[in-house]
């Protein structure tokens, strides 16, 4: 379970300081997904960095399973916008990197890796380097690395935004399928309304700077079979868009 209480982050620049996030409150059950939508500069990425333990200078409390965030103690998977693969490591080494840093023996994960490679359609690419992969394939490698670790929390920063529309839908499906198998608590940041509705059990709308939570929606359509072709799906997306427009123009 993820609990965020009164989280505020201020950035200190040379002349003044400004608030990136102001008084964020959010709760996420274990094994849930949560999509955060917000305009550019609303502090979405800042929120993810706090949860990833990269930003440690904040007010309020952030807890994973009733423990304050400690990357060395918990298992946090973070997939940045550019997928965060190391170009000098091949697919296999990149996938094992998380486990290696966590000090897990390399033998124990071999079966899991084979399974993940299968699920993510990466079989046969183990010896390739990220530079030799397409964007979609790199994204799959990043997912494999994150899921191999069986993280307490998975964070994704605009994970599918650099992909073309067809690849994006395909990988969203792959993500959901793998996520169902592993039931990992996931928070993803996006600016695609459809993506939020498709992948978020909870949808959180952030408002413009300083970032505050303006709405939290329990998404009734999450996990519904073939939901992208349902009338309800379009309806909800339209409603959300309207809501967001009102919100951001304030």
């Amino acid at each position: 379970m993820i609990k965020i209480n009164n989280l505020s982050v201020t950035y200190q620049s040379l002349e003044d300081c400004y608030a990136a996030l102001d008084n964020i409150n959010l709760e996420l059950e274990a094994g849930e997904t949560c999509a955060i939508i917000g305009p550019s500069g609303c502090g979405k990425s800042t929120l993810l960095k706090v949860l990833a333990g990269i930003i440690t200078n904040f007010d309020g409390t952030v807890e994973i399973n009733d423990q304050p965030i400690r990357p060395s103690k918990q298992r946090i998977g973070f997939i940045p916008q550019n997928y965060g693969l190391l170009p000098w490591k091949n697919v296999d080494e990149n996938i094992r990197l998380g486990a290696k840093i966590k000090g897990l023996s390399s033998a124990s994960g071999t079966e899991d890796i084979a399974l993940l490679l299968e699920e993510l359609g990466l079989k046969g690419l183990e010896r390739r380097y990220p530079g030799e992969l397409s964007g979609g394939q790199q994204q799959r490698v990043a997912l494999a690395r994150a899921f191999l670790l069986k993280p307490d929390l998975l964070l994704m920063d605009e994970p599918f935004s650099a992909l073309d529309a067809m690849t994006r839908e395909e990988i969203q499906d792959v993500f959901l399928a793998v996520w169902r198998e592993h039931a990992v608590s996931t928070i993803l940041v996006t600016h695609h309304v459809e993506e939020a509705v498709y992948l978020g059990r909870k949808i959180v709308i952030l408002s413009v700077s300083p970032g505050t939570v303006s709405t939290i929606i329990d998404n009734p359509l999450f996990g519904v079979e073939d939901v992208r072709n349902h009338e309800d799906f379009f309806q909800l997306c339209r409603q959300l868009r309207k809501k967001i427009k009102e919100d951001w123009s304030k």
């Binding site: 990833a52 990357p71 997939i79 916008q81 965060g84 990197l97 966590k102 670790l149 964070l155």
Partner: peptide
């Protein structure tokens, strides 16, 4: 960004 995944792994 290259560092972030490693930082978040502790």
């Amino acid at each position: 960004e290259t560092y972030y995944p490693l930082y978040s792994l502790g």
